[in-house]
Measured scan of single mutants.
Amino acid sequence: MTFKLIINGKTLKGETTTEAVDAATAEKVFKQYFNDNGIDGEWTYDDATKTFTITE
């Protein structure tokens, strides 16, 4: 399955996707992406659209 990440950061904005077997696996991938890029904020997940959103 394809999961999308929408980034609404102070310095970084955009979208990316990842292929994962489930939302929990995608969450781990995206959290690592947050850490690697110094993004910290509030994030949500919409199961209907398989979209994670992080807002700094």
Rank of each mutant, 00 (worst) to 15 (best):
I54P: 00
D46E: 06
D40L: 13
T2Q: 09
I6G: 00
A20W: 02
A20H: 02
I7S: 02
I6R: 05
N8M: 13
T55V: 09
T51Y: 01
W43V: 06
I54K: 02
T11P: 04
D40I: 14
M1A: 07
N37A: 13
K13A: 09
V21T: 10
V21S: 10
D22F: 03
G9P: 03
F52Y: 04
F30W: 04
A23Q: 08
D22I: 02
D36L: 12
G38R: 09
N37H: 14
Q32F: 06
L12T: 09
E19S: 10
D47R: 06
E19G: 03
T25W: 06
A48H: 09
E27Y: 15
V21A: 12
T17F: 13
T53G: 02
T18F: 14
F3L: 01
Q32E: 09
K4A: 03
M1P: 09
L12Y: 14
E15P: 06
G14S: 12
E19D: 08
F34M: 15
E42N: 08
D22L: 02
W43I: 09
N8V: 13
F3I: 02
T49F: 04
N8A: 07
D36T: 10
T25H: 14
K4S: 05
A23H: 06
T53P: 00
D47N: 07
L12D: 06
G9Y: 14
F52M: 01
M1L: 12
V21L: 11
Y45H: 00
E19R: 12
E27D: 03
T49A: 06
A26K: 01
Y45P: 00
A20T: 04
T2S: 08
G41A: 09
T16V: 15
F52I: 01
T51L: 02
T49V: 04
T2V: 13
G41I: 10
A26I: 03
V21W: 10
Y45C: 01
I39R: 04
I6E: 02
I54F: 15
L12Q: 09
M1C: 11
L5N: 01
T11M: 10
V29P: 00
F30K: 00
I54A: 05
T16I: 15
D36H: 09
A24L: 09
T16E: 06
K50S: 04
L12C: 15
T2M: 11
K31E: 03
N37T: 13
D36W: 10
A24I: 08
K31R: 14
G9C: 15
V29K: 09
T53E: 04
E15T: 10
N8K: 10
N35M: 14
D22Y: 02
E27H: 09
D22Q: 01
K10G: 09
D36P: 07
V21E: 08
L12V: 11
N37R: 14
Y45A: 00
I6D: 01
F34A: 15
E42T: 13
A26C: 02
T55S: 06
D22A: 02
Q32W: 05
T25V: 06
K10P: 09
F30Y: 02
K31Q: 08
G14R: 11
T11Y: 14
K13H: 09
E42I: 14
K4W: 11
A48K: 10
T55N: 08
T17L: 07
D47H: 08
G14A: 13
T44C: 08
A24R: 09
E19H: 13
D40S: 13
K13M: 10
K50Q: 08
F30E: 00
N37P: 05
A24N: 07
A48P: 06
L12M: 11
D22G: 02
T18P: 01
G41T: 06
Y45G: 00
I39F: 14
D36M: 11
I39L: 12
N37M: 15
Q32C: 07
D47Y: 06
V29L: 11
T25K: 04
T17Q: 09
W43A: 02
T53A: 04
T2L: 12
K4L: 08
T25A: 14
A24T: 08
G14I: 15
T18V: 14
T11V: 11
E42H: 12
T18R: 04
W43M: 12
F52S: 00
V21N: 09
N37G: 09
N37I: 15
W43D: 00
A26Y: 01
E27F: 15
D46W: 02
K28R: 13
G41F: 15
D36Y: 07
I6W: 03
D40C: 13
I6M: 04
G38N: 11
T53N: 03
Y45D: 00
E27A: 11
T44V: 08
A48R: 10
D46C: 06
K13G: 07
K50P: 00
T16W: 15
E27K: 07
T25L: 04
T44R: 06
Y33Q: 07
N35G: 12
E27R: 07
G38Q: 11
D46F: 03
T16Q: 12
D22C: 03
L12I: 12
N8Y: 13
E56P: 11
F3R: 01
E56N: 05
K28W: 10
T17R: 07
D47C: 05
K4N: 05
A26D: 00
T55C: 04
I7M: 07
Q32D: 08
D47I: 07
F52W: 05
V21F: 11
E19P: 03
F34Y: 13
A20D: 02
Y33N: 03
K4I: 12
T25F: 07
D36G: 11
T17S: 11
T53S: 04
T51R: 02
K31P: 01
I7E: 01
D47T: 06
D46M: 03
I7F: 13
T25Y: 06
T49G: 03
Q32H: 07
K31W: 06
T17Y: 14
T25S: 12
L12K: 07
K28A: 12
D40W: 14
F3T: 01
T44K: 08
K28D: 05
D22H: 02
T16P: 02
L12R: 07
T2I: 14
E19L: 13
L5Y: 02
T51P: 00
Q32M: 12
